[in-house]
Design a binder for these strands. Structure first.
Lengths: 196, 196
DNA sequence: TTGTATTCATACTAATTAGTATTTTTTATG
DNA sequence: CATAAAAAATACTAATTAGTATGAATACAA
């Protein structure tokens, strides 16, 4: 009951890395078991199908990462606009897991899988909704403590910020340069300041 | 020299539609020739490889569409902030080619192909750069005629707007509802008004 | 130790993939 | 009409794909 769950976890972690760089559908089981040095028998003992593994990646790898890097920085926020900016900057420029040329893992999966795989869509929308609500709540609390104007709509702002993050990640990919990140961050700061 | 280029064009158009909904790599030549009712011999007469066809889609299908729906509305703009808003709204809610559940064709291709196919990356970055420069120019002209503040950075604003568009397209996909589009548009209007 | 369930290993299958070789039909031009 | 080139049709190949069938180790409780 110990070594077994370890192999399961290494499969998920390695598979996540490959999928993050290459996409879900173009990542083959054969490639996953080759890099993890796990046999096909072991793989299919832990996961009934490839999609079951994909969903496990969302729930057991992506979700905790999201929790740690996208949710926690905004909880108990004292100055939400500042913390949102800091988090975005950290995600774009400092996070060791996220790479310029590979975009946002959740964004990638959303774009690739959502239109034709309902199970992935559901798992991802739950993930994303959590982030959205965290941002909304931080805006609400900022309205209460007066650091943000009364007439600001938290949901609108959340969509605006999240969209911007996903979008600029795509720009990073296509231009393959952090220059657009810096440019984006400057404008984000102006936008956030205008909420006060 | 006439019927031939017609079959070539139908291949590109049909292939584009399938790729838009399913992604490039999961769209097989067999599926393309089945839906276009063109034989494999004809396909490979017109395109040496699948990638050659993919690049032709970018240059011969995506580019003109981009020109028409993303560039033209901003040229000779008299009130850029208004026209940027109108264009975004039209793209999100009124464009008959773009579907809620399938996102932005250029964005999809960028995310899927850019990390590991340099030719696609180059073609797409050229496409996107054109849009970016059009937005920047419209901001510049608005600064000149005084409808936008002097201290606004056109490039930053361009990135911010384009990122938002790409990002909210992803949200439309995952939530599968135009509600987030409306919410986003409201906030976009506020953001654009703040540029004045 | 022995037996039993868990975990993993090996060798396969059927379907799908991009691409090719070859032949046939169509088109344009003298 | 004749003919050469362009355009398209047919039948294949070799590689890759997700998944399976079956057998072998391993762990662990009695």
């Amino acid at each position: 009951m110990k070594k077994s769950s370890a192999t399961r976890h290494t499969i998920l972690e390695k598979a996540f890395e490959i999928i993050y760089t290459k996409g879900y559908q173009t990542t083959s089981i054969d490639e996953i078991i080759a890099t993890t040095k796990v046999t096909k028998g072991a793989f299919y003992y832990h996961f009934k199908t490839k999609d079951e593994m994909g969903l496990a990646i969302i729930n057991e790898i992506l979700k905790p990462t999201m929790q740690n890097d996208f949710i926690k920085p905004l909880q108990n926020a004292k100055n939400p606009t500042q913390e949102i900016y800091d988090m975005t900057k950290a995600l774009l420029l400092e996070n060791p897991l996220l790479k310029l040329e590979y975009g946002c893992p959740a964004g990638n999966l959303t774009q690739e899988m959502t239109p034709w795989n309902a199970a992935f869509g559901k798992a991802l929308s739950e993930l994303i909704l959590e982030w959205q609500q965290t941002i909304e709540n931080s805006i609400k609390s900022a309205k209460e403590n007066g650091t943000i104007r009364e007439n600001v709509d938290p949901q609108q702002v959340a969509y605006f910020i999240m969209s911007g993050y996903w979008g600029i990640r795509n720009f990073g990919k296509v231009y393959n340069s952090t220059a657009c990140y810096h440019s984006y961050l400057k404008e984000l700061k102006i936008y956030l300041n205008n909420l006060a």
